[in-house]
Simulated assay, not measured.
Amino acid sequence: MNMNSSSDLLQYAGGFQVMEDAEMKVALPVVLGVICLVGLAGNTLVVAVLLYDFRQAKSSVANGLIVLLSATDLLILLFCAPLRAAVYSRPSWPLGWFLCKTSDYFFQACLSAKSFTLAAVGHARYQHVAEPKKYIHFKCRRLIAVTCSIWSLSVLLPVPHWLFADLRRREDHTACVLEIPAHAWHFMRVFGVAYPLVVYLAPLGFALACLLKALLKNEPAGNTNRTPNRRYEIRRVTAMLLALSGAFALMRLPEWVAWTWSRYRGVSGAAPPVALLVAAQLLTLANCAVNPLVLLAASQDFKDGARSAWAVATRRRAGGQGGTSTFGEKVCAAAPPHAGAASSLCALPTISARQDVAICRDLGQSVPPDVQHFWQHRENAAPVDNNDPIPWESQEQA
């Protein structure tokens, strides 16, 4: 895989361009296509299952933030990954000036939102473990406020990626580059240090610290409400969230190594290898497909929610095809064992009336004769007069 020059390589925005290796031009889009398919299916499933849990009153702030995390992954897979695949497969920038200005900016904004969301997930999980009674109820306003704060900060921090990205004609091709003007050189030197600290080290360090503290937290003295199974469940969910944050931190690490290497290597220093830069972007995009796999492998609640959502969807689909006779069977099975009560319950309107009536008729005919005689005797017996205000006089006369 060859590029024109190492110095040009470091300035490309929106993906690496002008690759001369024909095999890589085919292989990279194929790999990105697989990542997109797996990630779109997995994150759509995560969003659907957690939204179903919200409808079943199984909600928490951490679950809401995981929905936000999956929605951010969907944005990356829908808008950033296909653009990278198109750029890798073409000899020149094919997408115009507007996408050159916004593609890298939007990608960085989504990645920043993921970092801040994981920090919020870690904090919410620690608060839930430390004070379960206070944070047991889901508060939609709190989730909306956290989401607005995260995205407001995420769209502001990568603004230099939008300001300094532009199209440039170089030799026989057009490239989208990040070109720093002379008057902004010192600002970008500071930005090169502050940006990784704010969007990578600080939020992920905070998230990992909160989750580790929640994982190692001991039960308060005298607290006997949590059974061993309940404590194990709390630790297991915390460990799963810790795995999500750790996977994102590790898969983003190569990109920040290349970021720091390229900006502080000096004039005569060696540039980062092309393989490192390509692998860094692939790992960053692959993380969008890893998160649903972690949830599916480590979260029993997510598995149960997926089964419940699938069962509801299957039941609704079967109901639309006339398979709702089980409702009539349940009603008739709960009826008292005599014909009159069975007929009164089975007279209730049902969706598939013909099958229900047949079931109820069979149920009425299957009642033994002695049981029918017992219920008929109870129905025909004259009621006892218990309205005598002075029953003791009647008893004395008797």
Score class of each variant (00 low, 15 high):
31 V>K: 01
48 A>T: 04
186 H>G: 01
12 Y>D: 03
335 A>T: 05
148 C>R: 09
376 Q>T: 03
76 I>C: 02
157 L>V: 13
82 P>K: 05
328 G>C: 15
318 A>M: 12
211 L>P: 04
393 E>K: 10
75 L>V: 11
86 A>W: 03
376 Q>D: 15
318 A>F: 14
93 W>F: 06
88 Y>T: 01
225 N>I: 01
388 D>I: 02
63 N>Q: 10
341 A>V: 02
11 Q>T: 01
29 P>M: 07
300 Q>P: 08
350 T>D: 12
47 V>E: 08
301 D>H: 07
26 V>Y: 08
118 L>S: 02
331 V>S: 08
171 E>R: 15
184 A>E: 13
345 L>W: 13
202 A>K: 12
380 N>R: 13
15 G>L: 04
56 Q>L: 14
26 V>I: 08
292 P>V: 11
318 A>P: 01
108 Q>S: 03
123 H>E: 10
197 L>M: 13
66 I>E: 01
320 G>K: 09
105 Y>C: 04
185 W>F: 09
12 Y>P: 00
77 L>I: 11
201 L>W: 05
362 D>E: 14
275 A>M: 05
95 L>I: 02
191 F>K: 06
96 G>M: 07
323 G>N: 12
120 A>R: 13
385 D>N: 14
389 P>N: 13
255 E>Y: 14
312 V>R: 13
238 T>W: 07
134 K>G: 02
236 R>F: 01
350 T>E: 10
343 S>V: 05
211 L>H: 08
197 L>Q: 09
396 E>F: 15
282 L>P: 01
10 L>W: 13
119 A>F: 14
125 R>K: 11
89 S>D: 14
92 S>Y: 14
92 S>V: 01
29 P>D: 06
92 S>E: 15
242 L>C: 14
86 A>G: 03
194 A>R: 06
295 L>D: 03
66 I>L: 11
325 S>W: 15
391 P>N: 04
35 I>H: 06
379 E>N: 03
138 F>T: 05
389 P>R: 12
151 W>G: 05
